Amino acid sequence: MCDYTQCSDAELAALLRSGDDAAFKEIYQRYDKLLFLYAFSKLRNEEEAKDAVQDVFLWVLKNKHVLILKTTLSGYLYKSTLNRVFDIFRHRDIVKKYIEAGDYFIETDTEETDYLIREKDIALLIEQEIASMPPRMKEIYKLKRKQYLSTKQIAEQLDISENTVSNHLKKASKHLKTKLGVVIYVLHILNS
């Protein structure tokens, strides 16, 4: 029998994928308290932090046979915990304030990984805000920003006036600026 405390994270992940429950136990013991402290530092609520970490470990246990890591095990667990924290913040309806504070960026192995994590989270937030728009406004916004149609082309395609298209686009921009903040909105426009 091997000493799991001597195994690297990569070895533990491989053992876990093969169905080794002792490897899961070691991963849990290795990261449970650290992930709790991380979640608690974001949530400032002990019960929510415990729940977030338990949700992450429960998901890992249920999906251990298909668990493919594209980063380190610790990076994966921290990122999963951060995603669960975001779910809780969304539920609390205060994501905007949290992002503006800038406290949600996590330390990872490289700056590139950190950038990709932030970019993914911001992209998800933007998509959620676009999805929450009224149907006609959302349709017009997507035609403009995702299919790069002109105001005239959108008006012709939807059989409405150019003025109506312009009004919907102005309202959509105002909606996103309000929900996301000006900096994130400008980055979104520059990248779309």
Rank of each mutant, 00 (worst) to 15 (best):
R30S: 11
R118D: 08
S173V: 03
A131Y: 04
D32R: 14
L158K: 08
L169Y: 03
I140E: 07
K96R: 15
M137K: 12
N191T: 06
I122D: 09
K171D: 08
Q6P: 01
L43W: 09
E162C: 10
Y185G: 09
Q128T: 07
R17D: 03
L190G: 01
I117T: 08
S132R: 13
I99L: 15
Q54D: 11
S132Q: 12
H91P: 00
T71R: 10
A155V: 07
Y78R: 11
K138R: 15
A23P: 01
L37D: 13
Q6E: 09
L180D: 11
A10V: 05
R30K: 15
K25R: 14
L37P: 00
K152Y: 07
L149R: 11
R84C: 04
I27Y: 03
R118P: 00
E119Q: 14
Y31P: 10
T110Y: 12
T151Y: 06
C7W: 03
I126N: 06
D21C: 04
L82A: 13
K177W: 00
L73W: 01
I160S: 03
H91E: 14
K96C: 07
E162V: 08
A10I: 01
I27N: 01
V56T: 09
E26I: 05
K33T: 11
K142L: 00
K97F: 11
N45I: 07
E46V: 12
N191K: 13
E107K: 15
V183T: 14
I160Q: 04
Q157H: 10
V53R: 05
E156D: 15
H168K: 05
L67P: 06
A23Q: 04
M1E: 10
D114A: 15
A49S: 12
S74I: 10
L158T: 06
T81L: 07
T110M: 10
K96N: 12
F105L: 15
V60E: 04
K179C: 10
Q54A: 15
G19F: 02
L125H: 09
A101L: 13
V53Y: 07
R30T: 07
D87S: 13
L180F: 08
K144H: 15
K70C: 05
R136T: 10
E111V: 11
L73Q: 02
V186H: 09
D121A: 14
A13F: 03
L82I: 05
L187C: 09
V85Y: 05
K42Y: 04
V165P: 05
L15E: 08
L16A: 01
I88Q: 10
L69H: 07
R92V: 03
E107I: 13
L143K: 12
A13G: 06
L187P: 00
K64N: 04
A14F: 02
R118W: 08
R92G: 10
E111Q: 11
D93V: 02
S161P: 09
S132V: 01
K33G: 10
L77I: 03
R118K: 14
E139H: 03
L180T: 04
L61T: 05
